[in-house]
C-alpha cells in the first residue's frame, strides 16, 4: 500500500491520500497531518484523493478530526479528485456540509 504525502502550498496543507484508506493506516495520516497543522502558516487542508480506490469511515474520521482542529481558527477543509464512490461516502456522512468538494 502506498502511503500519503504532505506538502504546504501557500497557507494550505496538501495531503495526497493513499490508495486504500481504512482504520489500519488512518492514525499515521492524522498524526502526520497534525504535525503540519501546528505550524502557524498553515490554515487550510486540501485532501487529494487522486490515488484513492477505497475509503471507509476511517477517512471521514481523518477529515473530521482535522476540520475540528482548524475550523476554530477560520480554517477550511477541501477535497479534490474524489471519485464517485468517495463522493457517495461524503454525502452519506454529511461531511459535505463542512467540506467543499472541488472540481479540478
Amino acid at each position: 500500500m502506498t502511503g500519503s504525502d504532505f506538502c504546504v502550498i501557500d497557507n494550505c496543507l496538501m495531503i495526497r491520500m493513499p490508495e486504500e484508506i481504512d482504520h489500519h493506516g488512518a492514525s499515521i495520516i492524522s498524526e502526520n497531518a497534525d504535525r503540519y497543522l501546528m505550524r502557524e502558516d498553515v490554515n487550510h487542508v486540501v485532501f487529494d484523493f487522486e490515488r484513492t480506490r477505497f475509503m471507509d469511515s476511517s477517512g471521514i474520521g481523518i477529515i473530521m478530526g482535522r476540520y475540528r482542529k482548524i475550523s476554530c481558527f477560520g480554517g477550511r477543509v477541501y477535497a479534490i479528485h474524489a471519485d464517485k464512490q468517495i463522493r457517495r461516502i461524503f454525502s452519506v456522512s454529511g461531511l459535505n456540509q463542512v467540506m467543499e468538494v472541488l472540481e479540478v
Binding site: S57, S58, G61, S93
Partner: peptide, 23 residues
C-alpha cells in the same frame, strides 16, 4: 446512532453502522 462513538480520541467518526446500513 450516526456519529455516536466511544472512541473520538482515536479519530473514529461514529459512522460505522451508518455506512453498513447505507451501503
Amino acid at each position: 446512532e450516526p456519529l455516536y462513538t466511544t472512541k473520538p480520541e482515536m479519530g473514529r467518526s461514529g459512522m460505522g453502522f451508518s455506512f453498513m446500513e447505507a451501503f
